[in-house]
Computed example of a mutant assay.
Amino acid sequence: MTSTTASAIAVRDPWALVPPIGNLDAYISAVNRIPLLTQEEETRYARKLRDEADVESAGRLVMSHLRLVVSLSRQYLGYGLPQSDLIQEGNVGLMKAVKRFDPDQGVRLVSYAMHWIKAEIHEYILRNWRMVKVATTKAQRKLFFNLRSMKQGLKSDAADGDTHRSTLTSAEVASVAEALNVKPEEVLEMETRLSGGDVALEPQNSDDGEESYAPIAYLADDSQEPTRVLENRRRDELSGDGIGRALEVLDPRSRRIVEERWLKVNDDTTGGMTLHELAAEYGVSAERIRQIEVAAMKKMRKALEPVAG
């Protein structure tokens, strides 16, 4: 193949020009040169992929949206993770979006794919982000590389002989700040950072089987999420008027058993009666009381079905 022929193919097929992501600058430059698809082209390729499982159409859809992944990856550079890794994870999300995309839903692929791209990047960050960057400014870097050794020297020279102290005194903070030409508050901040361990973003299981509290628990507030609002509203309705309405379908004995077993709270906080106590009162076995309770609960659930639906 001559160079002229190769150039002609490259012009017609810019998808062949994308280099490996190892050379990030070249990769970004290449994907930005890939032309965007028109809506008609996008619909045609998407239908061929959906109806004929056409791999080439899938490739066209993916390649024309690689620049979207690059753009979204820039939003997550603050986590200290390589952009090339963010892009690779985002590309996985893009391919998932292309596979699931339905062109007849009236939505462009760019809008549909954003969710999948971000989801993969978020998952990657959750798996890999474990520690905030310790030193970012010039002063912080100076402290990071010198504070630990200076603390050891100050402890060995301590007049009180206390070499096990983990914190610096005010005089020692001032001494370090003067020696490194930084502010005392910067010394204190770096000492705090160095003395702290990594903080997991997700909860970790402890030895006793309980999950520890983690930042992920308060990073997002889903209290106003529409599904959560509807669930809360439904729960409030069922626990209020719904319970009273369900109890009305029971006979007096069944109703009393349910109230004693599930709804009764005495002043001494001991709760309602046990199966054996109710059995003694009604002159039947504890198993019979349990059977009555089960049947009553089924009747109540059936009465609540119109509300729950």
Rank of each mutant, 00 (worst) to 15 (best):
S3F: 05
A6H: 08
S7R: 12
A8T: 06
I9T: 02
L17R: 13
G22E: 14
G22M: 12
V31E: 03
L36M: 12
T38Q: 10
E42Y: 00
T43G: 04
A46N: 10
A46C: 07
K48N: 01
D51Q: 06
S57P: 02
A58M: 11
A58W: 06
R60F: 06
S64P: 11
L66E: 08
L68Y: 03
R74S: 12
Q75I: 03
Y76M: 14
G78E: 15
G80F: 11
Q83Y: 07
S84D: 15
D85P: 06
L86R: 09
L86F: 09
L86D: 08
Q88L: 07
L94A: 13
L94V: 07
M95V: 05
K96V: 02
F101P: 04
P103G: 12
G106V: 01
V110N: 02
S111W: 00
Y112T: 11
M114D: 03
A119P: 06
E123L: 12
E123F: 11
Y124Q: 07
L126R: 15
R127W: 10
N128G: 09
W129I: 01
W129S: 08
K138C: 06
K138E: 08
A139N: 15
A139G: 11
Q140V: 09
K142A: 15
S149H: 13
S149Y: 09
S156D: 09
S156Y: 07
D157H: 01
D160T: 13
D162N: 15
H164E: 11
H164P: 01
H164C: 10
R165Y: 06
S166I: 01
T167W: 00
E172G: 09
A177S: 15
E178Y: 14
L180M: 14
E186C: 04
R193A: 05
R193N: 04
L194C: 12
L194N: 09
G196L: 13
D198M: 14
V199I: 14
E202I: 04
S212N: 10
S212P: 00
A214D: 05
I216V: 13
A217N: 05
A220K: 09
S223H: 09
S223N: 13
E225M: 04
R228A: 15
L230C: 04
R233N: 05
E237W: 06
E237T: 14
L238F: 01
G240K: 07
D241N: 11
I243Y: 03
A246M: 00
V249N: 03
L250H: 04
P252Y: 04
R253Q: 12
I257L: 06
E259F: 01
E260L: 01
L263T: 09
D268P: 12
G271H: 13
M273Y: 08
L275E: 13
H276R: 05
L278V: 00
A280L: 09
A280K: 02
S285Y: 03
A286D: 15
E287G: 05
E287S: 07
R290Y: 09
Q291M: 11
I292Q: 01
V294T: 14
M297I: 01
K302A: 08
A303G: 08
P306M: 02
V307D: 03
A308G: 02
